[in-house]
Write a protein that binds this DNA or RNA. Structure first.
Lengths: 327, 327
DNA sequence: CTGAAAGCGCTTACAG
DNA sequence: CTGAAAGCGCTTACAG
């Protein structure tokens, strides 16, 4: 059986109270006792039971993380960064892949509450589904508005949209299309589209936004992009709302014997490590993923530790354009 | 405050014992009592505290998952699939990104033990570092040998290596190089290399294996691949040990004005959803990631539920070649 | 059919 | 400087 505190106490010839005190470095303990206890712990290979500690302290140091799916490298990287910053702060991640499925997400919320998580970081859309105000569980949202009092971490989507669109215009594109996912519509990511449309209007160019499904099924994106090229044969510029859509556009263009960037220029969004490794030629708007992860974790910790203190709810992070050769 | 079982008991006019019994559907309860209790739970928005339950039952339903990093889409997808199968079985995932760092991994193991996980799925190399036999925590390894009695889930690496190499030979390649990561050397993935070398020898062709760093830093792979092309200008076939290396090879070949597949043929390994979406042209050896995830979870559950029963320790999954246009 | 008691492994006032 | 007692929220023999 796993040794417990009373086993250590027996081995060290002291009471469980004393063992607990050296464990938590609380109150006065003679050096000798301390040494004995440490030796006993060592000998028995004792590790405290965090479940029992959490039950008493009402602090689990557990954080729920809800993402669409870690299969998508953007969320895979975000998950890794969030987990990293949590680990630094002594917090552990309970991972939930919602697959953009509302019922799944509700089940995950219940699971997280049963497991007494100290807080939740959510990256999926579910506005109104969960009663955030009632449950008053510390929460941070990622690129989604959940409720007026829940902080949202996002990149500067408007600026990103501006940078991308202005760049395409500056490079001489006339028929510039924006490709966006419907999942983005009630999120700050929608600002990318607003910026695109605003800049196009200012330049006196017609805006055309193409909405496609979130990337869960394989072929849908490719099919939608092909249809777009059929519909708008004169396309010479594309601002895609994420890098994998941008890559699909580049592939489709090549398939049609259009050269990138000569015939069609393409700008993506995200700039994950993995895509940078895989496709350094892609010009993209880079989100500072690590900084955003860090902010999300820090903001969540602030809420957990100062539940009453009011907090900044709009946590926007600067973006930059990473120039490749695709635009 | 969160309602507890005694609050529900009070509201329903029964004892905590009775509430617990309806919660667990144990023993006889009158329909009336049951209804009252359910209504009280509903009214108070009661959810049981799983920490307390776990403390009593000595079953946390928590599983530790140690991967190098979910930033890498292969592990991102594997993580998503494992989490999915765990969720189906009522198990929750505590996520650990070891970044191939031994000290980090040791800390994670301690954390997982403190949190009373029921089992661990490990995807990193650490043979000998953790004393698996002493801790006797149910464990399943993914593509790594940890200890003689720990089951290993892997793809049929030898067959994969054979399929890839034979295909390149059949397509007429003469100067075929294998690119592998050193991290693969003490793992079943090393069989990919053995198969490559065996098949090359059988065909009377010289084998040349190029070892590169695991993909954590951005440029290293690209640099190593460029060096390889310098060293072996006559390369006409490459079997890469993963798809992102394969893509880097394709890029480097194009940069040198070599056409793929005319001048150089490239076969990868993994075949993740994401890569299939992003680069359907890549010919690759596809690992059945979902099936492997399912096996890992099922095997872990078997160990947890039947600790004494001996288990199959070599869980090899069939692979197939997914033909693209790159080879 | 239902409840009082003891205990899961820990911690913290409170005595001494 | 150290220990006995009570309690965190739950469950399960054991009575009745």
């Amino acid at each position: 059986m796993k040794p417990k505190i009373s086993d250590v106490a027996k081995a060290a010839g002291v009471s469980p109270t004393t063992v607990s005190r050296v464990l938590n470095d609380r109150g006065y303990i003679s050096e000798e006792t301390r040494t004995n206890v440490y030796q006993a712990m060592e000998k028995l290979n004792y590790l405290p039971n965090d479940l029992a500690r959490s039950l008493f302290s009402k602090r689990s140091n557990l954080i729920g993380l809800i993402v669409p799916t870690t299969s998508n490298p953007f969320y895979g990287e975000l998950t890794a960064r969030i987990e990293h910053h949590c680990a630094e702060a002594g917090l552990k991640i309970l991972l939930c892949n919602s697959l953009y499925n509302v019922e799944k997400e509700e089940k995950y919320w219940e699971m997280l509450r049963r497991n007494q998580v100290d807080g939740v970081i959510v990256c999926t859309y579910n506005r109104g589904l969960i009663d955030y105000d009632t449950h008053h569980l510390p929460t941070v949202a990622f690129d989604h508005y959940l409720s007026s009092n829940i902080p949202v971490v996002s990149s500067d989507n408007f600026k990103g949209g501006e940078l991308a669109t202005r760049h395409l215009i500056a490079e001489g594109c006339k028929t510039i299309v924006h490709i966006n996912g419907p999942g983005n519509l009630e999120t700050p990511a929608n600002l990318r589209r607003n910026a695109y449309e605003t800049v196009m209007a200012e330049a006196g160019l017609p805006a055309f936004t193409c909405e496609i499904e979130p990337i869960l099924k394989q072929e849908s994106t490719a099919v939608a992009v092909a249809a777009l090229f059929d519909e708008k044969p004169g396309i010479d510029g594309v601002f895609a709302s994420d890098d994998s859509i941008a890559m699909t556009v580049i592939r489709e263009a090549r398939k049609r014997n259009k050269t990138v960037p000569t015939d069609v220029k393409v700008v993506g969004y995200d700039g994950t490590e993995f895509m940078t490794l895989l496709a350094p030629e892609l010009t993209t708007i880079e989100q500072p993923i690590d900084a955003m992860a860090q902010t999300a974790v820090a903001t969540l910790i602030a809420q957990i530790e100062h539940p009453t203190k009011s907090i900044e709810t709009d946590l926007i992070h600067d973006v930059r354009m990473k120039k490749g050769t695709s635009a």
